[in-house]
């Protein structure tokens, strides 16, 4: 996708962006812009809502209505916006800490509510913007500035968390798989309901440096080797699955979408008003 096609969606005058050399966030944001272009979304009817963290900075790059909210709360800012402007396509760019760290409560409730939002989670398994602290997604034993002796905690599986909480479209891929990112983001946007696209991505500056993977290229490939497509995953034994992560479209179901349900209630109540049989 030539960049000029993306200029309709991106504030190219704000490039170069703030992310570190070799960081996956630029690649994910590029994929999001491609998804918008391929779907030919109308920038006047699209909004990007970013939280606080490296991922939140994506909001500044999109030439459309955009919000850079408080940490962990992008989802609930977007909830209010979507309900009063249902015709807006609302896309969230969240970090892993942003979404399931401080924002965990809003994340599970948004999945449960099944609001028509698309949440792209830039999962680099660390708090990057604040300098490399451990995250709820940091794998066991991995180093960070706040797990200097190795992470003692067990990480969330964001995709499983989203499915369990009721999200009706959940996909996972990596920042290596560009076309899959574009495909899943497009499907998430088109999906009527809460769509979660978890993108495992590499943070060379902190996660990589603190875990012997300083080179972005090498880290990206190690990340890729760690994943197994859904189709293959089913044939693997428990041992083969041990330190691997399944990627692909993990869940897709139809369930009443919250905005639509609320506006149906409004229509019903207002027609009752007219007929005068409201209580």
């Amino acid at each position: 996708m030539a960049y000029d096609l993306l200029e309709e969606y991106l504030r190219v005058e704000r490039l170069p962006h703030v992310w570190c050399p070799g960081c996956g966030h630029g690649v994910i944001t590029h994929a999001l812009a491609c998804a918008m272009a391929e779907l030919r979304l109308d920038p006047d009817r699209t909004a990007v809502i970013g939280g606080i963290g490296c991922s939140g900075r994506a909001a500044f790059l999109f030439d459309m209505d955009a919000m850079h909210t408080t940490h962990g709360r992008a989802i609930v800012f977007a909830t209010g916006l979507k309900l009063v402007r249902p015709q807006l396509t609302v896309i969230l760019t969240l970090g892993d800490g942003d979404a399931v760290g401080i924002g965990g409560n809003h994340f599970i409730h948004a999945c449960r509510r099944n609001l028509d939002l698309t949440a792209i989670i830039y999962n680099n398994s660390i708090y990057g913007q604040t300098g490399g602290q451990v995250a709820p997604t940091t794998p066991p034993h991995k180093k960070s500035t706040t797990s200097p002796y190795g992470n003692l905690e067990y990480p969330f599986d964001i995709a499983q968390l989203a499915i369990a909480a009721g999200a009706t479209y959940v996909a996972r891929t990596t920042s290596f798989d560009f076309r899959d990112m574009v495909k899943f983001i497009k499907r998430g946007i088109l999906h009527k309901g809460f769509a979660v696209i978890e993108v495992l991505t590499h943070c060379p500056t902190y996660y990589g440096r603190l875990n012997e993977m300083r080179d972005p290229y090498e880290m990206l490939h190690r990340l890729k080797e760690h994943t197994v497509p859904l189709e293959e995953w089913e044939q693997l034994s428990a041992e083969e699955r041990a330190d691997k992560i399944v990627v692909g479209e993990l869940h897709c179901q139809e369930r009443p979408e919250f905005v639509e349900s609320y506006y149906a209630l409004i229509t019903r109540m207002q027609s009752q008003q007219v007929k005068g049989d409201g209580n």
Binding site: M1, L15, P16, W19, C23, V27, H30, F178, R179
Partner: peptide
């Protein structure tokens, strides 16, 4: 190269 570049710095046409 275009798909791996994080900086929108290289593209193929």
């Amino acid at each position: 190269c275009e798909q791996r570049c994080p900086d929108f710095a290289i593209s193929v046409h």
